[in-house]
């Protein structure tokens, strides 16, 4: 499962960003934007695996870790879906097409998309957590027949916060059972209301052949993983993508330490079984 991201082979400083240019910019929600970046430097646009992230640098303002949300098939671009929450991410959201950003990475571990044939997939996303899972969804769509049942369960705060909403019909049409639930809905909403785990009762989980991939707020993942365990899933078949403060992304700064793992290096994608003991503790 552990994959190496970008490692400079020439011994150059992994803290130095590479120049990338914004080739496309799409507003997803009022606070979320997807940027497609292509290398503007000598090195071609780097390849990645679903689940990995990059450090995106806005000139002068700083750097933030952002998951890659695009397709591995597009070798000419890296897509990032960014929610503007801090100064840097807000600036990234507002950067226009044609502008340059600094990019380091991709870094970190990947979702276990490759694996035995005919496995069932349970993709559980909360909020912005759908972004790194979209890369998985794209891979599944390309090779749909290699998988058994495939569910995409999406939780969002409100209808307006749903990411990639116009893609759901295509996902469904290709045989991904895509379901949505909201935290809060107006009277006109026809779908489900409740946290993402409230979708579980109607999902048939086949314990020994299912791999679950969870991405969202930590507390959501903890509840969801617990609920999946109750459904008989092994904690080693449940993968979560963790978030911690990151500055270096290469295991030097120590900020993202979580137990014996550096989330930047040993994560962000980790089997729930490895984290179980820590997730029950506060302030780890």
């Amino acid at each position: 499962m552990a994959v190496e991201g970008f490692v400079p082979q020439d011994g150059s400083d992994p803290m130095v960003p590479e120049p990338y240019r914004i080739v496309e910019r799409r507003r997803e929600t009022s606070h979320t934007v997807t940027l497609a970046l292509s290398s503007a430097g000598e090195v071609p646009t780097r390849a990645f695996q679903p689940g990995q992230f990059s450090m995106l640098y806005a000139f002068g303002l700083g750097e933030v870790p952002i998951s890659i949300s695009g397709s591995t098939a597009r070798r000419d671009r890296l897509e990032y879906t960014i929610r503007g929450v801090g100064a840097v991410s807000k600036a990234l959201c507002e950067t226009p097409v044609g502008a340059m950003l600094g990019v380091r990475g991709p870094f970190g571990t990947a979702w276990p998309v490759a694996g035995p044939e005919n496995r069932d997939l349970l993709i559980v996303a909360g909020g912005i957590g759908l972004a790194p899972l979209r890369s998985v969804i794209y891979q599944v769509l390309e090779r749909r027949s290699h998988f058994g049942n495939a569910f995409v369960l999406i939780g969002a705060r409100t209808e307006a916060d749903l990411l990639f909403r116009d893609e759901y019909p295509r996902w469904r049409a290709a045989g991904l059972d895509t379901r949505v639930t909201l935290d809060a809905a107006s009277g006109s909403w026809k779908g489900s209301v409740g946290v993402v785990t409230s979708l579980f009762p109607n999902v048939e989980v086949r314990p020994n052949r299912t791999v679950a991939m969870l991405c969202g707020p930590e507390v959501m993942m903890r509840f969801a993983a617990q609920a999946l365990r109750d459904k008989g899933l092994s904690p080693h078949d449940i993968y979560v993508s963790m978030e911690r403060n990151m500055k270096c992304a290469v295991g030097f700064c120590g900020r993202c330490q979580y137990g014996a793992d550096f989330i930047c290096r040993d994560g962000p994608v980790l089997p729930f079984g490895r984290l179980e003991d820590r997730l029950v503790l506060q302030e780890v």
Partner: peptide, 10 residues
């Protein structure tokens, strides 16, 4: 502080 304010930085 002033420079950060001018450029929208923390």
């Amino acid at each position: 502080v002033i420079t950060s304010f001018l450029h929208g930085k923390r």
